[in-house]
Nucleic acid binder design. Structure first.
Lengths: 216, 216, 216, 216
DNA sequence: AATGAATGAGCGTTCATTCAT
DNA sequence: TATGAATGAACGCTCATTCAT
């Protein structure tokens, strides 16, 4: 079965077809990253993939179909790497938390990450599919975080753990626009990772249920 | 002198002209927020402002000119409110820090903020003006943060204070896509503010120069 | 006020604009008649009117808007001539009926009529606007027929008169595809008019309410 | 030999091939009737026949080839039924004329007839094949009409009989757009048949060579 | 200060057709 | 017989921009 989900049925099943799909997705990704979603057009994707517009639309009948596969494809690369982290870390939750934070913050330096994610966030405000996708991928990112937090600070309820994980994950995402590749503060990415690790670790250890749920 | 900087020279100086400019900017902002930058067009702005395309282009000869004023105009509203915070807070740096964090996190619930800022971040990756504007506004946001941090933790160098302020500011921005208006976690916005205050205050107090600059 | 009803608001109000609209409608009509509706495209209309596609779409935002005005415009020419018949005929209903039949049958020889009406009929089966338009124009054609029939044969009820008028009108339309301009039987158009006059006049005089409504 | 004339040579000779051709023709006919000729495309036909575009083009190398067979196929159904009329009617020419008129007028209520024939007429104005086909089928329809007329009114010349038959046939076709299936006057179809029979029978009996050929 | 008219490029999409398998 | 892959042209339409009035 074909992994790509939004192509026309009965398409991309021959070896040649699969190669063409990869050419298309890579072309689309390059344009999205270099020029932004507002400049992404079927014509440009076709030129980038060195195929005709007609052939592009043979695989992706509508631009939206292409966008869906593009988002899936772009995110898969990150998720595959991220979920390899889980493996190969010993049982120490603090160490695991450190390694996750370190991985995510340093990944922000990746030029693809720097430009792709802000496009995704903006898109999610206007496109249902992008919105659902975001929910899914960040839920998967928070899973190991929640596991670490629960083990480091067992006094927190399940709901509270989820909120702390969300806070940590969201905080790191926020750095994208400032320390990402080509950004003014890109040189400080290591220090940001240091501050993040120190800050989040301290917080996870010390925070109490009351700290989270108090009403002022 | 006219406050708007990117309109045609000698334009928007009469009362009627100023009203038209406001109609234009509000129309543009509505479209940017409701439909995203990729759907923003001169035609739609003109329709929204109930003027002709020709007249719109009398004020803003090019779409880029309009975009510039749109960004300025949209950000001014936030900055005006933000800088009013400074006034009316007594001399306690910790209290001031708390109030800044609280203000920014709770502001994320604002629907305009939720959708406008991701558009700005995405834009900044491809548009020089948006990029510079981001630098300027976030530098202004960090100023009071840096002041508080210096006074709470005097051992930090000027550079280190800047990085801590950046970390705090960036962290809070990262919550936009998760706890903003209409987002899945919007109900948890108060708890996010609590975690943020607890987390950042603790960190600012405890962090050492070595924590920030150590190399692993 | 502008006579054309389906153009963009605030358009076609200057003398130049009105001239352009006429160029457009004439171009569209020529294409419809020479090549048929399936070959009618905005591009071809623009070429025929010697304007840009953009300008064409400035006047007619959608192809459907153009089609509507095209149908209105094309029919107006016939209706104007047809309704001039009413005037200048003395009070004799038989004479009036003869002149109507004669006019309509001979008009079928008009090359525009020959090709335009079959397109309209086909269109009416798939396009609501064309369907309604057909109803309206043929109702207007039947009005004077109904008047003559009532006066020639007063025994018929209002409903029966309507049906006889419909029969006569429909019968004449049916000749379009056979005796119209360029058709095999075009040379027989005069004889067709003779047969029609003799046949319909005889029938209107002799037909009884029972002839029409009997059930076999 | 294969009955279909416009398919690729050596094609449609196996049982499977014949079934596929029927699927194709039925799909094409459905589209022609439901959406009109302007919406008829090879793609839609292939989808409707549940085969690939490539396979469709194996049978019909060009759209025009398909159109030809489509017209032949669609008309055959009517002609088969029509020519069955001849059989089973006794020798009375007046009775035969009545039954022909009745059959044709009532057939207009058939939804296929209602929409198919106007498409054919419009097509005949721009397509040579459709034009020739029309000539052929209506000549076949007029044959029994001419036979009846000659026997009812022997004073008419051969040419005059042909014109009277044409008049009758054309008149009935004209009702398609008004009393056909789904049309406003569909309920009056029986009365239309009555008026037609009364009108045409009277005319055939009474009309003189001078009525037809007089010049005014 | 404002409108209407016009252009030309580009958009997403559909299409008939060709061809290798 | 039948499919999947590919092309190139055309489609309806939107767009930023220019210009005369």
């Amino acid at each position: 079965m074909n992994k790509m989900r939004n192509i026309r049925k009965g398409t991309g099943e021959s070896r040649r077809g699969k190669e063409t799909i990869l050419l298309i997705l890579n072309s689309a990704k390059t344009i999205l990253i270099e020029q932004g979603y507002s400049k992404l057009s079927m014509r440009k994707v076709a030129v980038g993939a060195e195929i005709s517009v007609g052939n592009l639309q043979y695989y992706y009948p509508s631009k939206n179909d292409l966008l869906k596969d593009l988002l899936d494809h772009s995110i898969d690369e990150f998720m595959n790497e991220f979920e390899r982290l889980r493996v190969g870390v010993n049982n120490d939750p603090e160490l695991h938390l450190r390694s996750i934070i370190n991985f995510i913050v340093l990944d922000l330096g990746n030029p693809t990450t720097t430009t792709f994610y802000p496009e995704l966030w903006a898109l999610a405000n206007h496109d249902e599919y992008a919105d659902k996708l975001m929910d899914q991928i960040y839920a998967r990112v928070r899973l190991p975080l929640e596991d670490c937090i629960t083990r480091i600070n067992p006094k927190l309820s399940v709901e509270q753990v989820k909120k702390v994980a969300l806070f940590i994950s969201a905080s790191m995402e926020g750095m994208t626009m400032f320390v990402g590749n080509g950004k003014v503060w890109n040189d400080s990415i290591k220090q940001m990772a240091n501050i993040a690790i120190m800050s989040f670790l301290q917080m996870v250890k010390k925070i109490t249920p009351e700290d989270i749920d108090k009403v002022l």
